[in-house]
């Protein structure tokens, strides 16, 4: 067993983990942060995407022990008093249906906008290529990211 300490959604969390414990399983099963779902075994779907030290990662493809000392933000930690602009835009644009891909999709979009505040449609689609959605055809997801980008640029002025 390995002792780890990870700042998760702003709070330091400590635990004992087996080496093989995936970050997503630790988040879900040990910390009870079940908002981050698991959608595949092959790191294709991106449903489990979280921010690790500020960048998007697929939490099914990181060992919990590798996250030791890191800062992790999950969908449950994105709102800071009020919803993140991407969360608002997803609701506004009907960018989700079943919602299972949504935590990963939103997290990936937050990462994308952190790097590129004014992306083209093409750049948005590139930025989300690691996240699969089966309900929306991505149409409204792209619209939501465009809306959020505009809101965030406006707020930054």
């Amino acid at each position: 067993m390995h002792r780890i300490s990870v700042t998760v959604n702003g709070t330091t969390r400590e635990g004992e983990v087996e080496a093989r414990t995936l970050l997503v399983h630790w988040l879900r099963d040990s910390l009870g942060l079940a908002g981050t779902p698991i959608g595949c075994d092959t790191s294709n779907c991106g449903a489990c995407t979280v921010l690790m030290d500020g960048r998007s990662v697929k939490s099914c493809s990181v060992l919990a022990v590798q996250a030791d000392g890191s800062e992790v933000t999950t969908i449950q930690g994105l709102a800071n008093g009020e919803w993140h602009p991407v969360q608002k835009a997803f609701k506004e644009c009907h960018a989700l249906q079943c919602g299972y891909c949504t935590p990963g999709m939103i997290t990936a979009a937050v990462d994308l906008l952190g790097e590129n505040p004014d992306p083209t449609e093409e750049e948005i689609r590139h930025g989300l290529e690691g996240n699969l959605c089966r309900c929306t055809g991505y149409h409204n997801i792209v619209k939501a990211v465009e809306l959020a980008a505009g809101e965030m640029r406006e707020a930054a002025k």
């Binding site: 991106g46 998007s56 697929k58 493809s61």
Partner: peptide, 9 residues
């Protein structure tokens, strides 16, 4: 190569 999240790691 792969996608942004995978390229981060």
């Amino acid at each position: 190569v792969a996608d942004p999240a995978i390229r981060h790691r």
